[in-house]
Amino acid sequence: MNWLPVALGAMVGAPLRYLTDRAVQSRHDSLFPWGTFVVNVTGCLVLGLLTGAPAADPHLRLLLGTGLCGALTTYSTFSYETLRLTETGAGLYAAANAVASVAAGLGAAFAGVSLAQAVWA
Rank of each mutant, 00 (worst) to 15 (best):
A7F: 02
A7M: 15
L8C: 06
L8A: 15
G9M: 08
G9Y: 14
G9S: 13
G13D: 01
A14T: 14
P15T: 06
P15H: 08
L16M: 15
R17Q: 03
Y18C: 06
L19E: 01
L19W: 09
L19N: 03
T20D: 09
D21H: 08
D21K: 02
D21S: 10
R22I: 02
R22N: 04
R22S: 08
A23L: 03
V24H: 13
S26L: 07
R27Q: 13
H28P: 07
L31E: 15
P33Q: 11
W34R: 00
G35T: 00
T36I: 14
V38L: 07
V39G: 06
N40W: 04
T42S: 15
T42I: 00
T42C: 12
G43R: 05
C44D: 02
L45N: 07
V46S: 00
G48S: 11
G48R: 03
L49E: 15
G52T: 11
G52Y: 08
G52H: 05
P54Y: 08
A55Y: 14
A55S: 11
A55F: 13
A56Y: 04
D57S: 14
D57W: 14
P58C: 00
P58F: 01
R61A: 07
R61M: 03
L62F: 06
L63M: 06
L64G: 08
G65F: 07
G65H: 02
G65S: 09
T66V: 15
C69T: 01
G70Q: 04
A71S: 12
L72Q: 10
L72S: 13
T73D: 01
T73Y: 12
T73S: 12
T74L: 07
Y75V: 01
S76K: 12
F78N: 02
S79C: 04
T82Y: 01
L83M: 15
R84E: 11
T88K: 10
G89M: 04
G89T: 04
G89N: 11
A90P: 01
G91D: 05
G91V: 05
L92C: 13
L92N: 03
L92R: 14
L92M: 10
A94P: 13
A95R: 12
A95V: 15
N97I: 00
A98G: 13
A103P: 00
A103F: 07
A103S: 07
A104K: 04
L106G: 03
A108G: 12
A108L: 11
A111Y: 00
A111E: 10
G112D: 13
S114Q: 09
L115G: 02
L115N: 03
L115E: 01
L115T: 05
A116E: 02
A116H: 06
A116V: 01
Q117H: 12
